[in-house]
Design a protein around this nucleic acid. Sequence first.
DNA 1: CTGTTTGCAAATTTTTTGCAACCTA
DNA 2: TAGGTTGCAAAAAATTTGCAAACAG
Lengths: 143, 143
Amino acid sequence: MGEIQNRTEMILDKLKEKGHRITPQRLVILRTLVESQNHPSVEDIFAKVRVHFPTTSLATVYKTISVIKELGEVLELEFSGHNRYDGHKPYPHPHLLCVKCKKIVDPELSSLAPLTQELVSDTGYRILSHRLDFYGICPKCQN
Amino acid sequence: MGEIQNRTEMILDKLKEKGHRITPQRLVILRTLVESQNHPSVEDIFAKVRVHFPTTSLATVYKTISVIKELGEVLELEFSGHNRYDGHKPYPHPHLLCVKCKKIVDPELSSLAPLTQELVSDTGYRILSHRLDFYGICPKCQN
DNA sequence: CTGTTTGCAAATTTTTTGCAACCTA
DNA sequence: TAGGTTGCAAAAAATTTGCAAACAG
């Protein structure tokens, strides 16, 4: 149990190892990233930190995300004017986005392995990572 | 033959139909989008138009892309600070990017249909589009 | 002619950077 | 105490918008 706590501790250790310091703001930002299931935006994270530390600046949020990104512990989903972050599963995986309510979920796709296999066989590429985003309308928003 | 010309004509007709006007700048922007195999950025397109019309502004490029996007004749690939455009195949399709030589190819993936099917069955979403980018190293760059 | 488009500049939006004061280790 | 971090403001970078002059139909 405490998988999220363990992951948080692990990242904190990594931070210390690299000579980074653990500030109260960073702790909240890190926890928000690790606990969030819904791929928060910078503004989302900013809002959450502000609850506990009202003087926190956006710059600090950006800087902290940047540090955690260097550790490979958060996945950045690039969108033109609104990046989202996944600190829960910081490795490439498929996303399913509802274009109406903007929710993002992680579907389980057993067919992904065969697809990647086909890609490798057909092209001879060595695959390093991927970005698989599906856009649609979730069951709730279909009404 | 003349597939690209045909597509260009078709889009021009669509533009006229909707009450848009065909200006020389728009013609060059449109041709660049339709002919490009390399998913050009706004700056790429801007540079090409400038060759023929040195007074063209970036705003015009953005506005024209926006209009063509409304017609559904260009695909926008969102990156945080550098969108790319595909006016050659303006519908969602997988991309395979070599991280070394930056080449982009369009792989044929017969496994994509079953994967989408699995997604629909599992989640109940109505899928509207997708973005599938694979990052890897092409055969040539593996040496 | 009429109304759309252009091109310039200013405004927006997201993210980055510089730096003095501050705080963690 | 030393040096990384914060928070403010200014700077970048990409895109959008307002508007008068230009131009397509």
